[in-house]
Simulated assay, not measured.
Amino acid sequence: MTESSYDAITFEQSGAVARITLNRPDAANGMNDTMTRELADAARRCDGAGTKAVVLTGAGRFFCAGGDLKAFATAPSRGRFIKGVADDLHRAISTFARMDAVLITAVNGTAAGAGFSIAVTGDLVLAAESASFTMAYTKVGLSPDGSSSYYLPRLVGIRRAQELMLTNRTLSAAQAQEWGLVTEVVADADLADRATAVAEQLASGSAGSTGAVKTLLLSSLKNSLEEQMEAEGRFIAAQADSADGREGVDAFLAKRRAEFA
Score class of each variant (00 low, 15 high):
Met1Tyr: 11
Tyr6Leu: 05
Phe11Cys: 01
Glu12Met: 03
Gly15Gln: 02
Ala18His: 01
Arg19Phe: 01
Leu22Lys: 02
Asn23Val: 02
Ala27Gly: 01
Gly30Asn: 03
Met31Asn: 06
Thr34Asp: 07
Thr36Ala: 09
Arg44Gly: 15
Arg45Phe: 10
Cys46Ile: 06
Ala49Ser: 15
Val55Trp: 14
Thr57Pro: 10
Gly58Met: 05
Arg61Cys: 09
Arg61Asp: 15
Phe63Gln: 09
Ala65Asn: 13
Gly67Leu: 13
Asp68Val: 11
Asp68Thr: 06
Leu69Met: 15
Ala71Pro: 03
Phe72Tyr: 15
Ala73Val: 12
Ala73Thr: 12
Ala75Glu: 14
Ser77Gly: 11
Gly79Ala: 10
Arg80Ser: 15
Gly84Tyr: 05
Ala86Gly: 00
Asp87Val: 00
Leu89Asp: 00
Arg91Tyr: 00
Ala92Tyr: 03
Ser94Asp: 15
Thr95Gly: 10
Ala101Ile: 09
Ala101Asn: 09
Val102Leu: 05
Asn108Ala: 07
Gly113Lys: 05
Ala114Gln: 12
Ile118Ser: 06
Gly122Pro: 11
Ala127Trp: 05
Ala128Asn: 09
Ala128Glu: 04
Ser130Gly: 10
Ala131Phe: 06
Phe133Trp: 05
Val140Phe: 12
Gly146Trp: 03
Ser148Asn: 06
Leu152Gly: 10
Leu155Ser: 12
Val156Trp: 07
Gly157Ala: 08
Ile158Thr: 12
Ile158Gly: 03
Arg159Gly: 11
Ala161Met: 12
Leu164Arg: 03
Leu166Asp: 12
Thr167Glu: 13
Arg169Pro: 01
Gln175Thr: 01
Glu178Gly: 01
Glu178Tyr: 01
Leu181Phe: 06
Asp188Val: 12
Asp190Met: 05
Leu191Gly: 07
Arg194Asp: 04
Ala195His: 07
Thr196Phe: 01
Leu202Glu: 02
Gly205Phe: 01
Ala212Gln: 02
Ala212Leu: 05
Lys214Ser: 04
Thr215Val: 07
Ser220Gly: 04
Leu225Asp: 08
Met229Gly: 00
Glu230Trp: 01
Ala237Ile: 00
Ala238Gln: 07
Gln239Arg: 00
Asp241Lys: 06
Ala243Thr: 10
Gly245His: 04
Arg246Asp: 01
Ala254Tyr: 05
Ala254Cys: 04
Lys255Gly: 09
Arg256Thr: 14
